[in-house]
Design a binder for these strands. Structure first.
Ligand SMILES: [Mn+2]
Ligand SMILES: [Mn+2]
Ligand SMILES: [Zn+2]
Ligand SMILES: [Zn+2]
Lengths: 146, 146
DNA sequence: ATTCTATTTTGTAATCATTACAGATATATA
DNA sequence: TATATATCTGTAATGATTACAAAATAGAAT
């Protein structure tokens, strides 16, 4: 955890991005909360520790980090933008009932698709939707009870 | 084209969705314009033919069609919701430069991923981003000219 | 340490997409 | 035709994001 966090700091220096206190805190939050939080979640939680924090700063920081390739934007839902500290290729599963987003490993190279050799592909995202194990068992439980 | 359009009408009847003029026109637009249009594009274009059309109706219609599984929402970008008449599994490629969204065939079953057997998977989406052939050749052209 | 400069943050206002709602219109049924 | 239901419309409200200008901060130079 700490090790990768130090790595992030170095990544920022490499890209000439100053590491302000606010930016550090946003990065820290994403590192510690890997639940793909929304801007509002990040802001609300950090605001407890940093009462002067502005939501604009959170937006600015997330944009900068994203442009630097240090975080990934998850657009699995059309009405909520989420952020992910994990920029390695992996899939996302969103539960329709509880709304939680689960990570899963994928081998993107296994996916067969049309010839796109004339396209320059920069990123690949895989989004699944459905119902998670917890919610499925809740449904069963409710049915049993009637 | 006409054949599948008749098919759509029947799908609507099957699901007890009345086929109003406005709904027919939205469906027709999506059938004829397979470029994954935004709400605004659909509204603006239909408004020429139907001056009384309300944007709210377009929103309502798209929601109804989506809930009935007759159209698919494409959330490849976080700031623009797009709509697709093609509900079969296929991938989407968005060009960062011209913004165009390309379809491509995929074999979703070829993708290897973590064991999700305890999850109920209802839908799978694959989104690629990068630069399309046309924009790539424009870049080359500009470099040559200096 | 002080001044100067560039960067970052903050707070507010503006914008844009979407939804809520209530009245008007059209459609179906008796 | 009368009545009930469904749909459409226009406007207002909401919520997320962006624009912007002033305030605060940090870094460099003197
Ligand atoms: Mn993730
Ligand atoms: Mn498509
Ligand atoms: Zn769930
Ligand atoms: Zn392009």
């Amino acid at each position: 955890m700490e090790a990768s966090f130090e790595g992030l700091k170095q990544e920022l220096k490499k890209r000439d991005i100053n590491l302000s206190y606010q930016r550090l805190k946003v990065l820290e939050y994403l590192t510690l909360n890997r639940c793909h939080p929304t801007v509002d979640q990040i802001f609300t939680n950090l605001h407890r520790d940093i009462p002067t924090l502005s939501k604009t700063t959170v937006y600015n920081t997330l944009r900068i980090l994203q442009e630097a390739g240090l975080i990934k934007v998850v657009t699995i839902e059309d009405n909520e933008t989420r952020y992910d500290i994990d920029v390695e290729d992996h899939g996302h599963f969103k539960c329709k009932l509880c709304g939680k987003i689960y990570d899963f490993h994928t081998d993107m190279s296994s996916l067969t698709f049309d010839d796109l050799s004339n396209f320059r592909i920069d990123s690949k995202d895989v989004y699944f939707k459905g119902i998670c194990p917890g919610c499925l068992s809740n449904i069963k439980e409710n049915k049993r009870r009637g």
